Simulated scan of single mutants.
Amino acid sequence: MGLSRARGVALLVIGTLLAVLAVTVGAGSPASAANRAAPSVSLREASGGLVKVTGRTASASPRVRFDRRSGSRWAVVKRTRAHHHRYTATLAVAAGTRATFRVTSDRRSRTFVVQMPASGGAATVTSQAAKPPTLYDACGARPRKADGTAWSCTFHDEFDGTALDRTKWVPQTAFVTGDATAGYACYMDDPKNVSVANGMLSLTVRKETSPQPCGSPTSSVTSYYTSGSVSTYHLFSQKYGRFEARIRNTASSVAGLHEAFWLWPDDRYSAINWPTTGEIDVAETYSLYNSVAIPFLHYSADAGGPQSGVNTAWNCTAYRGVWNTYTLEWTPTTLTIYVNGRTCLTNTSGDPAFQKRYIVAFTQALGNTKNAMVASTPVPATMDVDYLRVWQ
């Protein structure tokens, strides 16, 4: 992208469709304050392959969300709201099947497994082996490292306000994006291009009614197109850790749109001589290639061009127009990038370029070369960011 351019568990087994039983997870036993804050779960069998779920929440009337695991991914299956600390919901679990669910409220989650025997089976309840308790901090549930210890939150923005938090973010205004022949855009610090509302950051590329100066009001470079990009420049940077963002871009298969979640060396601590001094593109998306996200690690390997499995990957599924979660786990020896929980790229070079502090950036850009803007490129187009969470 360069400067121009996201527990304690009990196994609940439900019996036959005619039997009625209730099991409560997370209630009636001593627990830490963090565990008590997670919603409790009570299951009571209903008819026709439907299971009634009830439980208590930490606050009086939070939103409650149910996700169901499918392979390595979670999909939302139900949303409701608690009243007076209690909620109810009905989930579908076919006879003779087993399903894993996660209930979340107050940014606390609990996972449970429902197993419905085939018709005529006896009602049973078994317990799953205990797992390490879920720990929480400012970023919410703390993910665990490979060694079982928990990551600790160092930076987060849930974009819950009504304006960009300028103690965390700096809008980009010094560069342009796109293709001078097909069309380029000036990065602007303007609410039309950079805004926060409805729980998300929105970066928008748009066409203006008159040419706009790029870089400064007196710039001789102008364009009818403007766009938005923000970074933590001189406000936050970190060496190593876990970086995660949940992002949605504009649905399109027409060339012209380019989005990025990327990290750039903090120039307060190291000189910049791109590409050997490094750049970590956690995820770049291009409207011409509308079903993938492409990571790219810029460092000395750039001399050999793009190398799948080394500095980039081209098989990381991420459809446009829907929410996707992108995660970087970075240690002194390894960078691993995940797309929706699936490993996308692992680099074990331990290159000096990745032994320094980096800032974080989000960019809505116009494309260039093969992905340059065309007459039918859907503009305005917006990159939405649900959250950024960083751990160490």
Rank of each mutant, 00 (worst) to 15 (best):
M1S: 13
G2F: 12
L3R: 10
S4Q: 12
G8I: 05
A10Q: 13
L11V: 10
L12F: 11
V13Q: 13
I14E: 08
I14T: 11
L18S: 14
A19C: 07
A22W: 09
A22Q: 14
T24K: 02
T24D: 07
G26N: 15
A27I: 03
S32Q: 06
A33D: 14
V41H: 09
L43W: 12
E45Y: 06
G49T: 08
V51K: 08
T57A: 04
T57G: 04
S61Y: 04
D67F: 07
R69Y: 00
S70H: 12
W74P: 05
V77E: 05
H83V: 14
T88A: 13
T90L: 04
R98W: 02
R98K: 15
A99I: 06
S105Y: 08
S105W: 05
D106E: 02
S109N: 11
S119A: 13
G120P: 11
A129Y: 12
P132E: 04
P132R: 10
T134E: 13
G140Y: 01
A141S: 07
P143H: 03
K145C: 04
A146V: 14
G148E: 07
S152F: 01
F155W: 14
R166C: 01
K168I: 05
V170T: 15
V170R: 13
Q172V: 13
A174K: 13
T181G: 09
G183K: 05
P191W: 02
N193D: 12
S195C: 03
M200F: 06
S202C: 07
R206T: 08
E208R: 11
T209N: 13
C214I: 05
V221C: 02
S223G: 08
S223I: 03
Y225M: 09
Y225G: 03
G228M: 07
S231H: 08
T232E: 05
T232Y: 03
L235K: 15
G241P: 10
R248W: 01
N249H: 10
A251W: 00
S252Y: 02
S253W: 01
S253G: 12
A255D: 09
H258S: 07
W264M: 15
D267E: 14
R268Y: 01
W274F: 14
T277V: 10
T277W: 09
S287C: 12
N290C: 06
N290T: 12
V292Q: 15
I294H: 15
P295N: 10
Q307N: 12
G309M: 03
T312M: 09
A313M: 05
A318S: 13
R320V: 04
R320E: 11
T325S: 15
E329L: 04
W330H: 05
V339F: 15
N340S: 07
R342K: 15
C344L: 01
N347M: 02
P352A: 08
F354A: 05
F354R: 05
Y358A: 06
L366H: 07
N371P: 09
M373L: 14
V374W: 02
V374G: 09
S376T: 15
V379K: 01
T382C: 04
D384A: 11
W391C: 00
Q392P: 03
Q392C: 02
